[in-house]
Design a protein around this nucleic acid. Structure first.
Lengths: 237, 237
DNA sequence: TTAAATAAATTGGTTAACCAGATTGGTTTT
DNA sequence: AAAACCAATCTGGTTAACCAATTTATTTAA
């Protein structure tokens, strides 16, 4: 019951922020603000929109994250070097995107991991390989002992992402990881006997990366995601 | 006592946050905190780490974003359902990842866009197609008039991402967009006469999505990224 | 009249005070 | 002895006050 209250308030907060962002967009349009123009002050906006200054600051920081605004201390908040057209398009997207569908998470994870496996095979250093091996051994050890190995499984994949040498993909892997984990537990996609099978699959991937065979690495990773792949694409809903 | 107040730069602030996150990690390890255990209060942490409570809150919110902590109002901040091993691995990654390399952004964009083009061809609705067409026309119009069409180019690609029906990839496209734009202007990757060529390439992509030919859509998108692709992979640095 | 100087107002950033709900420890009641 | 109760304390969340740099308005000097 306390959780429900918490979730509700967070949803409410998110709704408030979405409303503020759309109001900022409307204001930019109505006032024909161009790149470099200054927005009204945070205090002014909080009065005009009848919300707290903190809410305004959060909304501005979010738009700043997407490169649409820029705040300069003791000066003001300015429209970034992005025209009104792109501004409207991006804000529309930002407002629409909230909680991603689980399938979209899985689909994106598969896409990323097929690529990181391939890149890891191409670029991995000896140090990367050692870290992957350690993660593999830790995973196998837990599985053989009949223990839960979700963490070790996760770290094996993250070690590959790191070895890919692509920091953006590495970041994206980190971003989708929590959603994947929580939803996995919720939907029980994974089978319990999957773990034993996983050892061989992980080893195959490791060997391909070790021998620097990108095609094989991608192939073995694809085999590893076979169950997930089927869940993602061969289900009607 | 009177402490001198100074505005911290973004970099300084980020360094402080990284230090706090690593200190939280050390504390979790030292105290052997397990999933569900409560962290010391924000006030306690701010005293122990000798930083403001606001800094503590920001660090906690970041770890909450990655699913490692969970704050419950009027109760406390708790270690998420992730063991100490994965916790350490993920925090290490989070600390390492800061500003992504430009090439990793480009590489990731290409990966995402080849996929979204393919998925858009498979899943696009008539409404999606109409929006893509509008973005295409707006782009062509600007280019023919000799005007700058960076925004319209961007919106065309975002329209495809939307049509892919994958909200996660759509989000990721939004995340990398600002970095791509600013770095493009900095490095001058794009050629000025690229724009005219772009009209035909965009049209090819649109037609492939219209006729729902995923393979062709991916192919045409790849052709569109030919220059970028070469920059990304055929350059020594 | 113009330009330099200066004072007042405005800005985003930061901190300390406050809030309501949750927790805790001790006391009372059954 | 155990359960119920209650007040003091602690919690994350929120708000209002404050800060110094900046911008604008006003005054002064040339």
């Amino acid at each position: 019951m306390t959780m429900k209250l918490e979730i509700l308030t967070k949803n409410e907060n998110r709704e408030i922020q979405k409303k503020i962002i759309s109001q900022i967009r409307d204001l930019i349009n109505y006032k024909n603000l161009e790149p470099g123009d200054k927005l009204p002050s945070e205090r002014t906006l909080s009065e005009k929109f009848e919300v707290s200054r903190g809410n305004i600051r959060e909304a501005i920081q979010k738009l700043e994250f997407y490169g649409l605004l820029q705040s300069i201390p003791q000066s003001g908040t300015f429209v970034a070097n992005i025209g009104v057209i792109a501004m409207n398009g991006m804000i529309e997207d930002i407002l629409r995107l909230d909680d991603p569908e689980f399938k979209s998470l899985v689909e994106t994870r598969i896409l990323l991991e097929l690529k990181t496996a391939r890149l890891a095979a191409l670029r991995r250093t000896d140090d990367d390989l050692r870290l992957i091996k350690e993660a593999l051994d830790a995973y196998a050890d837990k599985v053989i002992k009949g223990k839960d190995a979700v963490q070790e499984d996760l770290l094996f994949h993250l070690a590959i992402a790191k070895a890919s040498g692509n920091s953006t993909m590495n970041t994206f892997m980190l971003i989708i990881t929590p959603g994947i984990i929580t939803n996995f537990e919720k939907y029980h996609v994974c089978d319990s006997n999957q773990a034993f099978l996983g050892i061989q699959e992980h080893t195959d991937i490791y060997e391909a990366i070790k021998t620097q065979d990108p095609k094989l690495a991608k192939e073995k990773m694809k085999a590893h995601f076979k169950m997930l792949y089927q869940y993602c694409y061969n289900q009607k809903d």
